[in-house]
Design a protein around this nucleic acid. Sequence first.
RNA 1: GGCCCCGUGGUCAAGCGGUCUAAGACAUCGCCCUUUCACGGCGGUAACCCGGGUUCGAUUCCCGGCGGGGUCACCA
Length: 554
Amino acid sequence: MDYDKLADLLFPDVTDDPDQYESMYPERNLPEGACVTRLGPSPTGFIHLGNLFSAFADERIAHQSGGVFFLRIEDTDDKRFVEGAAETVIRSLDYFGISFDEGAGADGDTGAYGPYHQSERGAIYQAYVKRLVRRGQAYPCFMTEDELAGIRKTQEENKENPGIYGKWARCRDLSYEEVEERIKAGESYVIRLRSDGSNESPKYIKVNDAIRGEISMPENSMDIVILKATGIPTYHFAHVVDDHLMRTTHVVRGEEWLSSLPVHIELFDKMGWKPPVYCHTAHLMKIGENGTKRKLSKRKDPELSLDYYRKDGYHPAAVREYLLMLLNSNFEEWRIANPDIPADEFEFSVSKMSNSGALFDLDKLNDVCKDVLVKIPATELAGFMTKWSEEFKPEALHLFKGQEDYIARILDLGRDGKKPRKDLVCASQIFEFISYFFDEYFRIEEDLPERVSREDAAGILKAYLATYDHSDDQGTWFDKIRDIADEFGYARKPKDFKKNPDDYKGHVGDVSTVIRLAIVGRSQSPDVWEIQQILGKDRTENRIREFETSLERA
RNA sequence: GGCCCCGUGGUCAAGCGGUCUAAGACAUCGCCCUUUCACGGCGGUAACCCGGGUUCGAUUCCCGGCGGGGUCACCA
């Protein structure tokens, strides 16, 4: 068979010498040890937690080493195309503080290694495929879908390995004439790799995965499709060509790719290129309905969607912190030792990445949020609340927009000192947490303490109002409450009550709870005196009065 | 089913042949602090999947089971 002739028949218009691309996209001029990574999302633009997880790793590996992190849109499947994918991806990741150095962008590509949309790289792929054909390492295949399905069926029945190899690769050795004839007849065809691997007695290949160490697998023996009937390459081929030409040094991807690694290794080998360092990450898991771990699925699990966290108003810095914890097992300990250093200064290491699937733990995320939010200045959080309500709680926007100073004072309640309060988790929770500051949301949510009668409560409030002086300092203020406790037969100090419970109706805590109830509508809140200072004299007195009259009325 | 990955408390995980009567964090329980809650402090419950080897000695190495996950497309 004259492969040159076959190559020209298949690709009459392709005249490019693929070697020209080697000089068009030379080795990157980077310092020793700098890594080049990439994110290659399909163009649905939908970024989920798994992508984010992987993107953090990519970003850290590149930026920590002084390398390059770029975005390549992998739109080789026209069925999945969505307009404006690059913008969506960039926006989603930017929200979490991840930025690209080059690649696909909202306003076109930047960088010298493009195009960064696979759909625009047709000429490059074709040139290399043509060369493969010329070398006899790839061939056209005319098998129809039905034929393929039939093969699979017999293979299954005979318990043979499924796939196109050996005798099943029926188009492997077609004559030039037959190929020419079938093309003329308008038959559609794909280009398959002519694999050198043996299906019966495969050699084993060893690959050093940066996360998993040495893994050994049977070599590839399948004549996989490298160019679809549409002339567009499959993922496998595009990955090999692109990551070589774009000079990617580290490929971070999910472990679902592990099983196609032999294909990629053979492809790199046939192309005469050195494969990148592979980093196969474990999947994020969740507990399924049957109580077992399973991969998070983007169709079934809302918590995989980034919008899920945006809706609840999880702060990006917290999500980032949490994901970093899952990504690198020693991050958490580092964080405990270095509570105030930016996360970027943590020395990320690929080898410390977990190789078993981590269960997503909302409790842990919430806890991380508390620690992260307590370090964010209140004014910044106030702005965050405005943005969040703009998108997810528009009916409450007026409470935040333009009110940032007021909100900041509220959010700062009890956050100073060496033991700051940590009650802020996420925007939706914060809204709920501070809702009593908004008159339209304020209401009495809980009952009086058990030890306080309705009459006593009304009396306590009356007495409180009578002695209330908005300019009292905190000490004076609470002394007055102790006096009221005394007056109504409650112990001035809880300890007195504990010692002699029969001498009192309760203790000062019960009395202050009544006041707290009047002011915030619930029995738990930050310091009431500070709340009153923010609320102001009038609103404070009004709330006391209103609760008192409501108690008397009933 | 073939192939591959993974297997330490409820969860995330240290451990890389003896220092393991197995660290830490979250969750949980109890106590302390305290006008409530939160914070903080102290303490408790709780784990090396099973069976064979190798070894003076296995959580750690090897093999076999078992369990979980992934993958076997002209999808990525």
